[in-house]
Computed example of a mutant assay.
Amino acid sequence: MSNILYITASIRSDSESVSRSLGQRIVDGLATKSGASVTTRDLTAKNLPYVSAERFAANLTPAADRTPEQAELAAIADTLIAELQAADTIVIASPVYNFGPPATLKAWADLVARTGTTFRYTATGPEGLLTGKKAYLAIASGGTPIGSNIDFMSRWLTFFLGFLGITDVELVAADGIMGIGGEAKIAAARETAERLAA
C-alpha cells in the first residue's frame, strides 16, 4: 500500500487556514483514489527544534556511533527522515509568511537534509536520494504573487525538494487572497486541488 505524507505549516486552525484546506482536499482525493495510508506531520503542533551545532553534529554521526546525548538530539530528525523515506507522495500545505516559508517549515528542511541519507555529494555535485516520489504543494498567500520575483517560498521549496531528489512537483496556489476577489481565488484554488487529486 502506498503512503502519503501530509505536512502542514500554518499557524491557523484547520477551519481557518486556506493552505490546510487546499492540502486536505489533495490528500483526501489521493487517498480515496489509491487507498493510500496517510501520515500527518503538523509542524506547528510541537516545538520543532532549530538546528544547533550539537544537533548538527549528532545528525551527521552514524547511529551506531552516537552518544546517548547525540541519539536524543538526532531522534526528531531520524523520525522526520523516516517519514519522508516511507512516503510515495508528499503533500505540503503552507502559507507564505513575509515573502518566504514559515520558520517551522525551514526548520523541518534543515532537519531532513542529511548528507548520505537524503542526499549525497558526488564528483558532479549533490545528488538527491529520495527519488521516485511525487510532491504536491498547497500554498496560500495574502499578498505575495506566487511565482513572482518576490515569492521566495514556492521557488525555495521546489528547489529544496529537487535537491533531495523529489523533482515531480505539482503546485496549487491561492495567492493575493487578502485583496479584492480573494474568495473567488480561494474557490478556484480548491477546485484545482480537487482536480489534481482526482
Rank of each mutant, 00 (worst) to 15 (best):
E183Q: 07
E183W: 02
A193E: 04
T117C: 01
S52K: 01
A36V: 12
K185M: 00
N59G: 08
I90R: 03
P102N: 05
A138H: 04
T192I: 13
A184C: 04
L111C: 09
T118R: 11
T117H: 09
D65M: 13
G142K: 09
A103K: 13
P126T: 07
S17G: 10
A93N: 08
L137C: 13
A74E: 05
A138K: 07
A109L: 07
W108P: 05
A77R: 12
K33M: 12
A53I: 10
T144G: 03
I166H: 12
T118W: 14
A123S: 14
T32W: 01
S37C: 06
I11W: 02
L171V: 15
L171E: 14
R20W: 08
S94V: 12
A64I: 04
K185A: 00
A53L: 08
P49V: 13
A71S: 15
G147E: 05
I76R: 07
L157E: 12
Y136M: 09
T40P: 00
S15W: 03
S52L: 06
G142R: 11
G182V: 00
N59L: 11
F160E: 06
P145L: 09
E170Y: 01
G181T: 04
N98P: 06
I92R: 08
F159I: 08
T115W: 00
A123F: 08
L171R: 12
A75E: 14
G147Q: 12
L105I: 04
A174G: 01
I150P: 01
K46Q: 15
A103R: 13
E127V: 12
N47V: 13
I81L: 10
A31M: 07
F56I: 10
A86E: 10
P126L: 01
A187D: 04
P62N: 15
L137Y: 03
A198L: 10
G116W: 07
R41W: 13
